[in-house]
């Protein structure tokens, strides 16, 4: 493992350098207690100790609305549109990196998503070890407390003025050295990083699943036919989609078209969609595969707890806790629902 030690004043110089080459985004407090990734411009204050960035980072690879084809109605011609600005996300927490790793795999399966991949290829990710844990998060019990890949650099704050920076890719190392040579980390600094990780892990474990996450697919599957359970929990579901739209591992979209004002050219674009919305599973002729809110509600837990696992061997939920906050009806919490199912099944035997 190659690692360097970077001191706080150096970060400013590095950021300046990086920003000349690509769009740099950093976590910052946008409102009391709410954090977002915003463009770094020298003025924004980096929230090194943020607990959760409010909006999912998938928007950098799968924007809420993205043009994918432009066409000419007079010439009957169409051409793909692929936009992929060079960008750097600096300060991504491990659970969010895990979510991106998962999206990378899903977007590559079957028909590779070229728009996604182009954006992804032009993105550098610098991870950051969290120091605070969001009230709603439970990532430590979803196998998302640390990641082995998916970052170009991984930063851990080991003292108020220093970072232990682990190298994840050659490109990452290069970026670290743009301003000149940097100091190799010592064994003691590596140890400090390990301790920082253990500290936040202990904090994170306060909110966790009550059982080993690997059991989730089997548990949730056993509950599939428990209509009473799903109906009861979903009674106050507003079918608003917030829980899936904020989710870093959800990737569903709808495809639409619009003509220009002269009705000569047009564009086909995609736009976020999600299985919690009623129109999502509606097909031509008006048939809907998941007509009722409870079926959609159940489907989401099946996706997160089983279907994604069947494809990738990991859960479709990394425990960031965004959906828990986003759901105004307070019924979208996977930790609560999976724990409840586990309890119920445990008591059966």
């Amino acid at each position: 493992m190659i690692a360097y030690t970077i001191y706080l004043p150096q970060t400013r110089e590095l950021l300046k350098n990086w920003a000349t080459e690509l769009n740099v985004y950093v976590p910052t407090m946008v409102e009391d207690g709410f954090y977002e990734f915003r463009p770094w411009n020298g003025q924004v204050e980096i929230a090194w100790d943020y607990d959760l960035c409010y909006t999912t980072l998938k928007r950098f690879f799968l924007p809420p609305r993205e043009e994918i084809i432009s066409f000419d109605m007079k010439k009957y011609a169409a051409s793909p549109v692929i936009e992929a600005p060079k960008q750097l996300l600096f300060g991504v927490h491990p659970y969010d990196i895990k979510a991106i790793n998962q999206l990378d795999q899903l977007m590559e399966m079957d028909n590779p998503d070229v728009n996604y991949q182009a954006r992804r290829d032009n993105t550098l990710i610098f991870g950051l070890e969290p120091v605070h844990v969001a009230e709603t998060a439970f990532w430590s019990s979803m196998g998302a407390a640390s990641v082995d890949f998916g970052y170009d650099l991984y930063w851990t704050r080991i003292s108020p003025g220093a970072f232990f920076v682990q190298v994840g890719s050659a490109r990452g190392e290069e970026m670290l050295k743009v301003g000149g040579p940097v100091e190799k980390s010592s064994v003691a600094q590596k140890e400090a990083a390990r301790r920082a990780h253990l500290k936040v892990l202990a904090e994170a474990q306060k909110h966790s699943l009550k059982y080993d996450w690997q059991k989730t697919p089997e548990l949730v599957n056993k509950f599939f036919n428990n209509q009473v359970f799903w109906r009861e929990r979903s009674q106050t579901c507003l079918s608003c989609g917030s829980c899936v739209l904020v989710c870093p591992t959800c990737y569903c979209f709808d495809v639409k078209e619009e003509a220009d004002d002269l009705l000569q050219k047009g564009s086909r674009y995609r736009q976020w969609d999600g299985c919690m919305l009623k129109g999502f599973a509606e097909i031509a002729g008006g048939h809907n595969f998941r007509e009722t809110a409870w079926e959609r509600y159940r489907h989401r837990y099946m996706r997160k707890g089983k279907y994604i696992y069947d494809k990738l061997g990991e859960l479709g939920c990394i425990g960031c806790g965004r959906c828990v906050k986003a759901c105004t009806a307070r019924i979208a919490n996977p930790r609560a629902v999976y724990n409840e199912i586990w309890e119920a099944i445990k008591n059966e035997v």
Binding site: Y54, R59, P64, S239, C240, S242, V246, W272
Partner: peptide, 30 residues
């Protein structure tokens, strides 16, 4: 434009929250 192209425009059926999330707002309830 949709009328001129022989279609009837139908607005989304889902609630505003969907577009609010796309816009990246902090939910007012929070």
């Amino acid at each position: 434009k949709e009328l001129l192209l022989g279609k009837i425009y139908s607005p989304p059926k889902y609630p505003v929250c969907v577009e609010c999330k796309m816009a990246g707002n902090i939910c007012r309830f929070e």
